[in-house]
Design a protein around this nucleic acid. Structure first.
Lengths: 190, 190, 190, 190
DNA sequence: AATGAATGAGAATTCATTCAT
DNA sequence: CATGAATGAATTCTCATTCAT
């Protein structure tokens, strides 16, 4: 509950946007201040070191996807559709998450403080996907296979988020959902 | 062609190493020169702009994986093993490729010149994987499914390369290979 | 006179301590406020400019050593012991004086406002020492020699105060007392 | 034997002057560059960190007073005159030494790297003065007394150097020389 | 009377790039 | 060809000081 939500928030908004587009290192704090329309000094008033901008962004704005938020998009009997819906939900429930994940990826190699967030994100995504698969499959799936399927799909989602910023061709998430569904024994789609 | 191959090469070697570890932006040309044990001026003599170092690295050192190089690792009847072998081969045939891919990922968002390489890499990887799947499967696989399966596996490989540098938990490539194999109809492994 | 003596005093206490340890220029007012546990604004409420902190410190806290305070430490017939006792008394009668002298030395070069205090301090110390020597010597000492002896000893005391903060080896005040005593004709110590 | 003596030297000259007058902390590197009439970047080319300017100054320019240099100013039989001559020689043989000592004093409290220099300076001055006293006195002086006398005079010299920059009244070096001479048994001057 | 958010003028430092030799 | 001295624009960060409340 930060006070002065107005300006502090505007700074974070600007940083989020710029970091995602240009990268953390390539974004001068001065540009953040400009974009937020606040004086340069104010950025450092709220975030003493530049890295604090990034850290705060991750701490305050990176939502840990909750199982609850996914449960209701699962379509029993249709794992492929369920995965797709989950993916859409994860990416859509707030525009932030994608942007922030984008940042995590790029910076985690260079900024060790950011790594934990990436680790956590992957782990929680895997768990989430496992749950989704579990609920969607009306038949029994071996635990190990389910985990492998979940990890596969998570890789695709992350690669997708990554490719989006990298500007390359986007991987085919829908295709991957179908592949994974088949792998765990879903009936061949008509 | 270039004379003094020695020193030019040493510069590229150093750049490759440093860019991979610290990132392109965070690596001063002076450090490249130091690491290569050449005078600072020589770096700019060979590579007038810093970005040329990166571009040259991609042009000269990023191998387009060849179908031929993969053909002989395919094990007919065992797509999972084939994919895994291919992945290993891709990663091993030269240590460089991984390092360079790492770079591509990080920089392609910020340096547009790098994007094409990423695009090309993904495309050729997908083709390669498709070929591998085609050769490995003794049964018929629908073209579309094969493509989707290939793309899925490529995502996992790229995510793997990416996660390695990001320092997070590595995705389970072996599991993904199994999942993809199942999806295209491989018999359940004993 | 000042109300809220409490907080104003705490600010001065903190400033005195920090200025002595880190130097005036290197001590941000914010640190003073922190150390004093008062809001930052209050420092400027009481001391509109930073330099006022220093000036106030000198005006309110730098005691002009009084002849009276020294008279009773003089041991007639033993100038060396008297000087030493005086030195001890000057340093002990309040911990502040040393700290503040330390500050004067460092800042007087840079902050002209501080110079006068240093001048005054030296003069009053010389007078004091002269008095001490006069009272301690049971024999006649030429006025000029007494003055020179006093100045010599004052130099040693100041150098001592200075060296203490500078961290160097401390000059031998006791030895100097002996030397000065001899110079004005004290009998060679047994 | 630094090359490009010209500009590097000019930078050191400027730094020496400014540091002595305004203090190290209060002198921006930009002012040094201006005074030396070189671009700002060149200062950091030669002296990567600001403190290196100071350290280099001490290492390259602070002469350790040599016994030889003093031997020939000693006047046998007249310790007072000898000390005075020594003092003059120390201060005059180059204007630098005084300036640099001035700097040492001010900064040694705040910059630990500078302390050693101060320690060394004091020690070598004491040794020098002892030698001077030994050579000047035609009579026997107890070793301990000689040491105390030397230390006393060194304190006065240092206090003198210090007072000069602090702007206060200068201590009477001549008087101190007389006092010290008397203390070690010199005949009362006519 | 008291405060803490706000500001902007520097400060040190970095570095790609140039260029005289 | 090769080089390392030189440059200055850009960047992060600091802090005394102001002022609305």
């Amino acid at each position: 509950m930060p006070k002065n939500t107005d300006r502090r928030t505007r700074i974070l908004d600007a940083a989020e946007e710029l970091f995602a587009v240009d990268g953390f290192d390539a974004t001068p704090t001065a540009r953040v201040a400009d974009a937020a329309d606040v004086p340069k000094g104010l950025v450092f008033y709220y975030f003493p070191r530049k890295i604090d901008l990034l850290l705060t962004l991750l701490q305050e704005r990176l939502p840990t996807p909750s199982k609850a938020s996914v449960a209701d998009v699962v379509r029993r009997g249709d794992p492929a559709a369920s995965l797709l819906a989950m993916h859409r939900r994860l990416g859509l429930e707030d525009h932030d998450s994608l942007v922030l994940r984008t940042i995590i990826f790029r910076e985690s190699g260079t900024h060790p403080e950011v790594r934990d967030h990436l680790r956590k994100l992957r782990r929680s995504l895997v768990e989430l996907t496992e749950t989704a698969l579990e609920q969607a499959a009306e038949w029994t799936v071996a635990k190990k296979l389910r985990r492998q399927a979940a990890e596969t799909f998570v890789s695709v989602m992350l690669d997708h988020a990554n490719a989006r910023r990298a500007g390359g061709a986007l991987p085919d998430v829908q295709g991957a959902a179908a592949v994974v569904a088949l792998a765990i024994g879903a009936p061949t789609p008509a």
